[in-house]
Structures are given as structure tokens and as C-alpha cells.
Design a protein around this nucleic acid. Structure first.
Length: 287
DNA sequence: CCCCAGGTCCCGC
DNA sequence: GCGGGACATGGG
């Protein structure tokens, strides 16, 4: 039983991973990272290729953390299976060294990405912070738990709208209600294959193909999920189809073939690459 | 004042 | 099924 633990890191860029737009609640405090994971407050820091973790209460085992961070995933092996002769992914591998995919709580991920549509990442973070401040349970100095589906179901749309999520309040409330009433079982989704899992998630209001892929990638660790967002569509068109403009259908066919078997990791690397390095035509000239 | 944001929903063809 | 527009809110 200890409040601290140390783990050896291999090919793990914690800062890049926590700020890559897959998780919305991490706070950087004096070079450390704080969040609530699996109902526990935790503070992380990296020193000499070791991860130092600190919790508020003593822990008997730390699986909840290693699982969330996916510490046992062999990143080198995944990257070695990226398509050969792809200069764009090669560049992304260099600029995104150690970037990882997390395995987050399905409900929290789902709620966060329902709020993500047509919003900038900073604003999504603000909405989620508001939501937890108002409706989460106090757990540790300045921290609240992420409100449960049942809690959101007990509120009104207007309550949610007060978190400045706009029209998404309707979706989040309806989805929270469906989950609270067991009309969908998020734990059971984990046992489904990619396609049926995606169809199941899309039954929920506010979840279309893109948000479903985000949930499958960031919470269920489905390697095939490839969120088709505005950044990626723009990047794929410019990098892989500079002359002609592929239809969405052609684009999906290309993705499924070209990025197998780790579509999701390739997406995350391209996304983080273009978002941090720029490199897309028309970014500065159009401003 | 106009444009856009890690999209989804709803409509008419 | 597949285009187009509406949708809240905030920032450039």
C-alpha cells in the first residue's frame, strides 16, 4: 500500500500524449500532470525515463493507471508496421516520437466527444471543466469526479446548456438518459467487433461516425478506428491526393487499405503532426 | 460583421 | 444513399 509508484517508460512521450486532443481534463501544474482516473486523483511526472505517480489515497495495485496509459503496449512494434514508403507517416513518426493512444473510460470519452462537434479543442476542455465543476462530486482539492450518466439524466437540458455546450446539451442529455436507463450497455460494447461496436454507439444521439471512431479509439482501443475529422480530411487530400479530390467513399477505401493494421495510430500521428507542425497548404496564406 | 471550429441531424431528391 | 443547411457559442 503506497501513495506513490514508479514505472519504467519505453518510447512514451507523456506530455504529447496528454495534450493530443484525446483527453480533455489533464491539467499541467509545475511540470506535473493532474487528473481524475478511475475515480482517483492522480499526479504524474517524468524523470529520467521513469514515470512517477502519486495518488491521494494508498493503492494496493496500479492496474487502473497502467491500463489507462497503455504502458504495456509495444509502440516500436506498432510503428514498424506502418506502411513502408510513406514519407508523410515517416515525418509524423519523427515529430510525434513517443505519442501514444490512451484507454479511457467509455462514458467520459463519449460525453466529451459529444461536446466536441463543431468546437475547438480548447473550448471542449472548457465545457468539460464546467460540467465537472457543476455536476461532479468533490473528490480532491479543486477536483470533481466526472458526473455519471444517471446524474446528467437527472438534470435538465438547460442545466447542461449552462456549461456553454449549446445545442449539444440536447444530445448529451438524451444520451445520458439512454445509458442511465440501460438502453445501451457500454461494458458490453467492449466485447464487440469494430463494425458492430460502431453501429451500437451510433444509436446514441449526438454520436455519428466520427465521434464513434473517437470513442472506439480512445476508450476501447480498437486499432481499426480512424476518426475522419476536418484536420485529417484536409491532410489526407493534400498529402495523398494532391491532384484529384476523392469522394468520402474513395477516401475511406484508401484509409482501410493503406493504414492497416494500425489505422488509429496512423490517424493520431498524422493528426498530431499537422496540428503541431503545420505543413498543410493554405494555413498561413488564408489567414 | 463575417468566418470557422476533432460533426450530427434533418430534410428533399 | 448523398448533398445542403441549421445548429449554440466563442474567438480571430
Amino acid at each position: 500500500m503506497s501513495r506513490t509508484a514508479v514505472f519504467t517508460l519505453r518510447d512514451y512521450n507523456l506530455a504529447a500524449t496528454l495534450t493530443s486532443g484525446q483527453a480533455f481534463r489533464w491539467r499541467e501544474v509545475d511540470g506535473t500532470w493532474e487528473n481524475i482516473i478511475a475515480g482517483r486523483w492522480v499526479r504524474l511526472s517524468v524523470k529520467d525515463k521513469k514515470l512517477h505517480a502519486e495518488t491521494a489515497a494508498p493503492q494496493t495495485d496500479w492496474h487502473w493507471l497502467t491500463d489507462y496509459l497503455q504502458l504495456d503496449v509495444n509502440l516500436k512494434k506498432i510503428l514498424s508496421q506502418f506502411p513502408k514508403n510513406d514519407p508523410h507517416l515517416a515525418a509524423a513518426k519523427k515529430t510525434c516520437r513517443g505519442l501514444r493512444l490512451l484507454k479511457q473510460d467509455p462514458w467520459e470519452t463519449l460525453a466529451g466527444f459529444i461536446c466536441s462537434s463543431n468546437k475547438r479543442i480548447v473550448q471542449i476542455q472548457q465545457i468539460i471543466a464546467d460540467l465537472c465543476d457543476r455536476f461532479g462530486e468533490p473528490i480532491h482539492e479543486g477536483w470533481q469526479t466526472f458526473p455519471t450518466a444517471a446524474r446528467l439524466a437527472s438534470l435538465t437540458e438547460a442545466d447542461l446548456r449552462d456549461c456553454r455546450m449549446g445545442y449539444r446539451a440536447k444530445y448529451l442529455h438524451a444520451t445520458g438518459t439512454m445509458i442511465a436507463q440501460n438502453e445501451i450497455d457500454l461494458a458490453a460494447v467492449a466485447a464487440l467487433d469494430y463494425e458492430p461496436a460502431k453501429a451500437e454507439l451510433q444509436r446514441l444521439p449526438g454520436i455519428g461516425p466520427k465521434v464513434a471512431d473517437c470513442i472506439l479509439l480512445f476508450a476501447y482501443a480498437h486499432p481499426q478506428a480512424f476518426p475522419l475529422d476536418t484536420w485529417i480530411i484536409k491532410a489526407l487530400r493534400q498529402l495523398y491526393f494532391p491532384r484529384r479530390n476523392p469522394t468520402p467513399k474513395q477516401l475511406r477505401a484508401f484509409i482501410q487499405k493503406h493504414f492497416a493494421p494500425h489505422h488509429g495510430y496512423a490517424q493520431q500521428y498524422l493528426f498530431h503532426h499537422v496540428r503541431t507542425q503545420g505543413g498543410l497548404l493554405g494555413e498561413t496564406s488564408e489567414e
